[in-house]
Write a protein that binds this DNA or RNA. Sequence first.
DNA 1: GAGTTTGAAACT
DNA 2: CAGTTTCAAACTC
Length: 751
Amino acid sequence: MDTPERTQIGSSSTPISKYEDSPVFNYINNLSPIKPVKSIHVTQAFSSLTFSSLPSIFTSPQVTSIKESWFLRRHQNLESSKLKSLSADVETMSNNEGTQDEADLQEISQAGISIASASVEQPGERAEFAIELPRTLKYDCGSPDCCTNQDIDLQRVDAIDRPEGNANHGDNQTGKGCDWEGLVVSDTPDLLILSSPNDAEAFRGIFQNSPGLAIGLGVSPSSSFFQNNMTNVQQMQLFFQVGLDKEPEMGDASQNLEIRNTQEDHGSDDLESVEIYSTDGLENESAALESLDKMKALSNLQRGMRRRCLDFEMVGGHKCKILCDSSSSHSENKINSKNLQLPPVNNNRRSRSSRCIVPGIGLHLNSLALAKRDYKVIKCDTLSSETQVLNASDQELLPQTMISSAPEKEADESGDILVEDTSQALVLMNPEELNPSSPRKKRHKVEHGVEGEACKRCNCKKSKCLKLYCECFAAGVYCTEPCACQDCFNKPIHEDIVLATRKHIESRNPLAFAPKVIRCSDTVDVADESMKTPASARHKRGCNCKKSSCLKKYCECYQSGVGCSVNCRCEGCKNAFGTKDGSILVGPECAAEEEEAEKSEKTEHDAITLKRENSRMEEQVPSANLPSTPSGLSRPLAHLVFPLSKVNPPRTSFLTKNGSSIVLKGSQKLRKDEFLLPPQPKLEKLLQPKNAEDEMPEILRGSSTPNDGIKMASPNCKRVSPPHGELGSSPSLRSGRRLILQSIPSFPSLT
DNA sequence: GAGTTTGAAACT
DNA sequence: CAGTTTCAAACTC
């Protein structure tokens, strides 16, 4: 099994080889521990070179054969004084001295550029090392490679676009672990470490401490290595060219990924090789194989590059910077799209990628949040940053993500929560994420159309962003740059603390991180429930407002764009989205107002009902479409969005609500109308009575369960009945519900 | 931008 | 569970 040495010996020294030819000699050779002097160098080289190489040899005869040829080549090249160079190569590589390595690198780079060059031999050598290791080791660390490959692909694009200075060699340690978390958490430098031992080893043997190689990878023009080495520069150019060529292609990251993956599967780990193949044509695998050997070295290098890039990407903060660095907005968008798209593309890696993907934003504590953002980002990219479109798409995507990513919440609160989340997610996505250019630290500013809750930006000073006071923390999101928090611990670096704190809080209140607003009955069999309380959204706990009359953002219900519910203990509720219930609570004033308003409204209501119904039908259709087809939804959503946005952050909730709740209920219809119109006190008053009536049933609570809704409904009906009596209180409600029912069937049909 | 108001979150 | 304190957002000037 000492094949390498033997092969080397035989190849290098003709006399020995002669003897070797004889089986007897071979036998003796095996018996004798003593080895030729020359072989020693070789052996050292190997020993140093290949921790992993040995296994590779054992595992794959092909590899060994390759090595043999490699050694032969090497010896020929090194004949005179370069015998040491082998060991020196290995050593130098580790030592960074490697003048020869640089030459090799140049050769490699040239080879990589020209693909076919006399110098190919040497690169081939290294390439073999790199390749061999990965192949042999691949199986050892199955998952990482796969992941890495995909990631690499993704990164490639980014890497091309992004110059990164440091070619940091990751330690195998990190690589072994294939700790994505570590990668994510860890800063860029270690990222190169490579999740897969293959890469790590390959880099070690080849690159380790060799700036030239790092340059050869040439991911970063800024890197001193790169600057220092002209050859590197050439490679850089190549890379950039490739990147430029690809960038336009990048639009379809998925395609690129697939191609790359397939190519890698074929056995070529090199991204470049993949690219080359793609350009040259994957069809000719034979030709590709030839080029592969040459390319392998480059491919390995690129691999490392890619991974680095991924790692960097992983680090949320860098993305923004990188993006900013990218010259063209297009490139940025593409990059974003790439990054963002990745998660959706790779469902398996979603969690990982999601983290990385989330731009600037740290890891979402909640998988939901992750999913949300990811979708958001993706949508933004794909849709060209149109919030409306995004909304539609988000809704579609969200449910999926929600389902996959956040089972916990789902279990807790059913589908309603998910819906909310989606809305929030949309909100998040739309406003600022789309326009990272203007990060506003304070919410005040954030108000732009959609933002609201979406872009969580805290200003915590004492809570360290580890309490629910912190919106970011409460939202399950890491604080980001726009946050003006002080002594913030809600960062990926402190992931442990964050998780521990989160856990602690959840221990006290399992629903602490659940969405505050819960959709009553979106998913449920709409028929009955929808009838009852399409109200759709209610605040989980309700508010406790005393002075704000639930007309300001102090009120969480109002802030969420949700009407107050039975759960609320608010005083003097005048929530424009729906009072607790005109019922008792409102008090004399509210009651009187409500009654009057109701009376006045009745007439209006009747007149409006038709309109509402029409609008409902329209809205319903889009809402129904939303899940199914984003495109269709986009516009209607857009309508909703703007008004909602104007109204408040509740927009987010509104959007969700709009989809289900508004459509469902006649009262909500009013809401929509209201929302469409800027929500104003006038409207509020008018609406309130309506809301009171309509919402009364809605009030059923945000109760996720239909049962609750039903319960709620009955009391509401009682309350409402008197005012409704005019309208035909119960009948009106029922009628409204009936209408809803009618509309409801439309949903499924439409969908 | 600073100060006040407000209500949720946290604590006792 | 209720009362109090703490906190940060929302709001006002």
